[in-house]
């Protein structure tokens, strides 16, 4: 588990996401604030590398967008624009410019919103961008989500070397996207594939990956 530990997260919807290297940080107000997170209600979520940080930031933004009261401009329109950018990144339609825009919006919304909700709304984005910036770049430039969470971008492929032609993946695929008969090596039809990941877990030879 420890080598996969990608992120430590204090469960507060406005809190920050921090990477595994800060595992030894004491859980108190000052220490967490110093590394860009916050105490919140004191809860903690631990995630491994199957969790996409861009998706996580998007999830938090969805919350603030729906909770915004709509009174002040930065929170009402700004958080919505941030969410739209994150949605673009997750759909593989983002660009490097989007990362810059996201950062600019985040900093300014934080400083100019009228209440605590708007002021802390960008926190999850700011902290994920601080510690997991490479992941944002992968989404924006290489159009790649290594955690396989952004379905629009992930491509599941079967390693020809490792495949033994057992057909278990084919049997479990809910949309019949895997071709091949008998002992033939199996191939995934990318058009049909819904990136559910069922085949990944069903392969006894770890031949399927992205």
């Amino acid at each position: 588990m420890e080598e996969n530990l990608k992120q430590l997260k204090l469960v507060d919807l406005h809190g920050g996401c921090i990477p595994g290297e800060h595992l030894d940080t004491p859980i108190d107000y000052e220490s967490l604030k110093a590394i860009g997170s916050m105490m919140g209600s004191g809860g903690l979520i631990v995630m491994d590398d199957t969790k996409c940080m861009v998706c996580l930031a998007k999830f938090y933004l969805e919350f603030t967008v729906s909770e915004s009261c709509g009174k002040c401009t930065p929170c009402r329109i700004g958080t919505k624009r941030m969410l739209e950018i994150l949605e673009r990144l997750c759909a593989g339609e983002g660009s490097e410019l989007d990362i810059y825009k996201l950062e600019k919006l985040a900093v300014n919304i934080q400083k100019s919103s009228i209440c605590g909700l708007g002021q802390s709304a960008p926190n999850p984005v700011i902290s994920t961008m601080k510690y997991f910036r490479e992941e944002f770049r992968e989404h924006a430039i290489q159009k790649e989500c290594k955690a396989l969470e952004c379905k629009a971008m992930s491509k599941i492929i079967i390693d020809e070397e490792k495949c033994k032609g057992c057909g278990l993946c084919q049997k479990h695929c809910p949309v019949r996207a895997i071709k091949g008969e008998g002992r033939e090596k199996r191939i995934i039809d990318q058009e049909k594939c819904i990136k559910c990941g069922t085949c990944l877990t069903s392969c006894p030879f770890h031949a399927i990956g992205n």
């Binding site: 930065p74 300014n108 400083k111």
Partner: peptide, 17 residues
């Protein structure tokens, strides 16, 4: 400069909608 940038962002957001 920080205030000016924030005002510009706010105005841009208003105009965007």
């Amino acid at each position: 400069p920080n205030v000016l940038e924030a005002r510009h962002v706010i105005l841009d957001l208003i105009i965007s909608n």
